[in-house]
Amino acid sequence: MKELLIAIDGPAGSGKSSVAQLVAKKLKLNYLDTGAMYRAVGIYLHSKNLSPSDDLSKALDEIEFFYNSGDLYLNGEKLKEQIRTAQAGKLASDFAVNPLVRLKLTEIQRNICKGGRFVVDGRDIGTVVLPNAQVKIFLTASFEERVRRRLKELCHKGVDLTFEEVAEQIRLRDEQDSKRSLAPLRPAEDAIVIDTTDKSIEEVVQEICDIVLRRMNCENDRC
């Protein structure tokens, strides 16, 4: 089975995780949520009373991820819904600025995807993790729309936050992601940028699937 890697990047609230899952389902590909991996590692390191500025070498050496049919396991335990909290998101961003964390997870993500057929979403997939991905997408949306989406998501989970509180969380996350020295958030040079502000999730999914199919047909025809 020929390798096929689709990288979908974008800032918080751009809809990349929901879109990536649906694209994978529609095209019958595997889905890898790298954000879940950073959240899980952030929670794990925090539970060890470590901070991003500490020497994390030993703790990171203890980390093992296993991927099976769409599910991720950290040290034998399946990732659960607790990684979706606002605190988990903050821990993910805080620890992601440590180069050792990014290097560790980049290596793991590459190994999972090697030779496979994956849709992978994150913040540095097209630029760092899978620079040779056949298709690279960068999703974006207006700041206000991204806040509304995240607020709606949190409300569904029973998290009671105001628009202003969620806006501040996303603002801080954007700042951390774009200003970190290693693998800052930015579109790959050959990425297709899609503004999802005024588009439904179905429209975005279809647009990406069309891009993938055109690219694959082009490769098959050697155009």
Rank of each mutant, 00 (worst) to 15 (best):
E3Q: 15
E3C: 05
I8C: 06
I8V: 13
S14Q: 03
S14E: 06
S14F: 08
G15F: 10
K16N: 03
V23E: 07
A24V: 08
K25L: 14
K28C: 06
L29F: 13
T34K: 06
G35R: 00
R39D: 07
V41M: 09
I43D: 09
S47M: 10
K48G: 04
D54A: 12
D55F: 10
L56Y: 00
L56R: 07
L60E: 00
D61Q: 12
F65Y: 15
Y67E: 00
Y67C: 07
Y67V: 01
D71F: 10
L72K: 02
I83N: 02
I83M: 03
R84D: 01
G89E: 09
V97K: 14
N98A: 14
K104I: 01
T106D: 02
E107I: 01
Q109G: 05
R110F: 10
I112S: 08
K114Y: 04
G116F: 01
R117L: 00
V120E: 08
G122N: 03
R123Y: 02
R123V: 05
I125K: 05
G126T: 02
V135G: 00
V135C: 04
K136I: 13
I137C: 06
F138K: 04
F138G: 02
L139Y: 00
T140M: 00
T140P: 05
E144N: 13
E144P: 07
V147G: 02
R148F: 03
R150G: 01
V166S: 11
V166H: 04
E168R: 13
I170F: 03
R173C: 09
E175V: 00
E175W: 12
D177T: 13
S178P: 05
R180Y: 11
S181H: 12
A183M: 08
E189G: 08
E203G: 07
V205P: 08
V212Q: 11
L213H: 10
L213I: 15
R214N: 14
N217C: 04
E219T: 13
